[in-house]
Amino acid sequence: MRTSVQEMIAKSKDKKSKKIIEKLIPVLLFLIASVSVLTTIGIILTLIIETLTFFTRVPFTDFIFGTTWLPFSNTEARFGIWPLIIGTLKITGIAIIVAVPIGISAAIYLSEYASDNVRRVVKPVLEVLAGIPTIVYGFFALTFVTPVLQSFFPEIKIFNAISPGIVVGIMIIPMIASLSEDAMSSVPKSIRDGALAMGSTKFEVAWKITVPAALSGIIASVVLGLSRAIGETMIVSLAAGSTPKFDGDFTGSIQTMTAYIVQVSKGDAGYGTTIYYSIYAVGFTLFLFTMAMNILAGYMSKRFREEY
């Protein structure tokens, strides 16, 4: 049966359908792949269109220069974004103060000191920490961290900026730790060995060689952490309160941009009201903040990759 298989192949009927499939599939897959692009376009268009509607009712300058956010007032509603930005920055600031030292220390420990066994245990545990839903963190902030803080500092209110700030910090530790560790461990071993062979201690290697070499990667991880903290929603909705304030108070109730969106969505702000459109304006502001951070982080990590 020398040619019989080839004959069977020649006789096989699915040649035509094969050709059609080969033409059709790439088109179909291209359409599928364009969904992610359409999503971005959809987000931007949605935010822009609804925000523009918002600006037909509230002057643009009131929004970006105003320092009073009083959307629910019947007589004199005010939509100055700054109190929400300040609230967001308070949370982000505390989160960074918590997460950066711990995250980077953990990264240095894992990449420079820890044995393989320790690493094998610690890294998955950090992954677990990263996989916990934010609603759980929010519950933790409200029912544990706040009472503990109150027992030391009685002036702290039930809703405040400190407790959710700390917990947002805990939430972004795994991200900063693992991205920084990636950056540090991609510094070539030969450079490290060179320094060790000169009689450097591990700390000197970490501080004078690895960290400076991995700096742009580490900064990228911090910026990404910042972006995550700015966009974090549930922790602040549960534990930070809903009082937009333009001041420097951390112990009382505040409100972030994300928490405002949740507050309005939860309530019955009817479709078409100014309050309804205001969540898009706030969402757009939030989007611009996180986008700027992400682009900055992308730029930093690209610079880092180019170095090695």
């Binding site: 999503t39 971005t40 987000i43 609804e50 929603t233 969505s265 996180t290 986008m291 992308g298």
Partner: peptide
């Protein structure tokens, strides 16, 4: 970039 957009913004979409 899409991976970095806050989830609440996806809610608005």
């Amino acid at each position: 970039n899409l991976a970095g957009v806050p989830s609440v913004v996806f809610g608005l979409l």
